[in-house]
């Protein structure tokens, strides 16, 4: 129901920031994630950062898969 695209914060200017979407740059609002810092990642929807995320999505996926497979092997 809502596209959420990861982006990296490049520069912060008050309530706004320049975010890098893998080569595309655009101003976004960071009012919903005020603690975010330069070089950190967030999920962007309609020009607003809605949540901070970790850089490596793929790593996270690997981690939970490992967990779930281990769990089932033991059980």
């Amino acid at each position: 129901m809502c596209l959420g695209i990861p982006a990296k914060i490049e520069k912060i200017e008050g309530d706004f920031a320049i975010a890098d979407f893998n080569g595309i740059k655009r101003q976004i609002s960071i009012q919903l994630t005020p603690d975010i810092k330069v070089n950190e990642y967030c999920l962007v929807h309609a020009g607003f950062a809605i949540e901070k995320i970790t850089k490596d999505y793929a790593e996270e996926i690997k981690r939970y898969l490992k967990e779930i497979f281990k769990e089932t092997e033991n059980g």
Binding site: C2, Q31, L32, H45, A46, F48
Partner: peptide, 12 residues
């Protein structure tokens, strides 16, 4: 239009 994901952006 939208749900709780989009409404805050309009609110702000």
């Amino acid at each position: 239009v939208g749900f709780e994901t989009t409404a805050p952006s309009v609110a702000l």
